[in-house]
Design a protein around this nucleic acid. Sequence first.
DNA 1: GTCTATACGTTGATAGAC
DNA 2: GTCTATCAACGTATAGAC
Lengths: 173, 173
Amino acid sequence: MTEKQENILSAALKLFAEEGFSATSTSKVAKAASVSEGLIFRHFGNKEGLLNALLDLGQEKAKLVYSNVIFETDPKELIRKAIQLPFNVAKEDHDFWRLQFKLKWELNKYNEASWEPLQVAMTNAFKKLKYKNPEMEAEYIKHFLDGLVGAILRGSPIDDIKMTNFLLDKYQL
Amino acid sequence: MTEKQENILSAALKLFAEEGFSATSTSKVAKAASVSEGLIFRHFGNKEGLLNALLDLGQEKAKLVYSNVIFETDPKELIRKAIQLPFNVAKEDHDFWRLQFKLKWELNKYNEASWEPLQVAMTNAFKKLKYKNPEMEAEYIKHFLDGLVGAILRGSPIDDIKMTNFLLDKYQL
DNA sequence: GTCTATACGTTGATAGAC
DNA sequence: GTCTATCAACGTATAGAC
């Protein structure tokens, strides 16, 4: 991976996350990366190839974030970590996650399955905590987290401490 | 409003909701509406004017949906109606709502304020029901509803009866 | 690996006839 | 109100030189 290649990737990530995939031209990416436009196609084949390279790179980061939650054995601690996910996610790799959310609407490219390990883990945690309906409880919190992350990524002003405390209290953690 | 104008609007709504605003060309809209491309610009000025005409029309429908909830005086009934919103919304005016959700990501055109009346109404309802933290409770359910509506609009398979019953039970309605 | 030059369809938009 | 013809700018993508 040369320096120019990295320039292309980081410029593309930023632009795609900000303005969307379709609305970002390859020439814009080239300029932002201080690179000739042809180079993008040499390295990534076409515009979609560039997007996929970005997505592949992010995939590993996503797994890291998830694994910290789903391999937690203490059920209360697991729910606690899940609840804090939106606020952590928003700080590091902000652009990557914004791109993910944009893409699921722009290209209907939603990896619905990416939530699944987390949902299963939460279901299990709620089971251990003797909740009446663990499956629904997990789905409920999944939709909430999805909505919350989205709001944060769009820049909504959210009082994270207040929200976290409210949730910790609600789930008696 | 002539027939051709209506053709343009309905074709545009469908295409914008399906494929996104940027990804839909005016020529595509013209073909789908069986109309010359020039006519679109005669009537709506430019592509964004067409989008705004669509949004204005939808605004009234949105108000109707909201008003049915927020003017409910019985707090339990209000929460019940709010909970059922995602499932009702998805049936009628599906394309309009899908466009709304797409737009808030594609053009960062999110009318954050559009949720506000509902949020205020829910806060009030939770107050009447003696909840410990009505404001946060309303915000919590807002994010949940946002996530849920999104999932439904993207075509996620969701068991609406199971989900509704779970929620009615959870909020003791 | 990288750049320049270029091909060529598509895009949003306008002018003028009917 | 509606259509046809037309435009310049921009879009993705390729070829060939260094």
